[in-house]
Design a protein around this nucleic acid. Structure first.
Lengths: 130, 130
DNA sequence: CAGTATCCTATTAGATACTG
DNA sequence: CAGTATCTAATAGGATACTG
């Protein structure tokens, strides 16, 4: 039963949400933008160690399409583009914080703190290494 | 910079959480178990239309490894196995509900209601079809 | 009944070179 | 600077046959 079209089939709100900020990078991008408010392309790139341009650009496009971030382009040389969260994007932050909290923090405050450090923290859950 | 091992690198609580209930099926499984409390393998399978055995079995194993669900095996013929949520699994439900709510519901109650219907609902967000 | 084993396809991620 | 284009690699997801 193949889906020849590249369409995602979002069948419920759960799938929609996980599609919007799931995957390897999108939640991290929202996280970083929630702290720095406005960042240029290369600034985001350097906050996210080990992401490639192809993947970062794709993630940013999806986040724009889902109206989580806005892209503001200044027409000057050299080019300058700034990204920031939309209101909808801001509204997702509490969810990401609650995930941080659930993932091991013992309090709401600690969850928010972990969220603030999410870019570079070396969190290790009690996940088995199979 | 290759990661030759099949190890996931969970670097922050956000990645941990999204690893636990992200992907195409795991949140749905938690969702279904939160309503029916205890289900046998084939019962889960029939609640989740279009999942194959290989994929369902893999998801159930990961959820067990992450201590989200428990597998109770009865040694009888024919075999009988029951799955249910652990306490940790139950504790993830509010997060999934808040995702449902964020994804388009206007109230907490509506979010919980959507969550209850998540298996079969035909939710359509205002997502562009590119 | 409750899965495994095997094989295959689709999607996602990554490296790198290049461009307005 | 902020990407795009292209190619390759890794992973997720799926179909189907088989088994204790």
């Amino acid at each position: 039963m193949y889906k020849p079209k590249g369409e995602k089939d979002i069948r419920c709100p759960l799938e929609y949400g996980l599609n919007v900020f799931g995957g390897k990078w999108k939640a991290r991008i929202i996280c970083v933008l929630s702290q720095k408010k406005t960042l240029r392309y290369n600034a985001i790139r350097s906050e996210m160690t080990d992401i490639s341009d192809a993947v970062l650009a794709a993630a940013l496009k999806e986040l724009q399409a889902d109206e989580i971030i806005v892209r503001k382009q200044y027409d000057e040389i050299p080019p300058k583009v700034e990204y920031s969260l939309t209101e909808k994007g801001e509204s997702a932050i509490p969810i990401l914080q609650s995930i941080c909290q659930w993932s091991g923090a013992s309090s709401k405050e600690e969850g928010e703190h972990l969220m603030k450090q999410c870019q570079k923290c070396d969190y290790k859950a009690d996940k088995k290494t199979n």
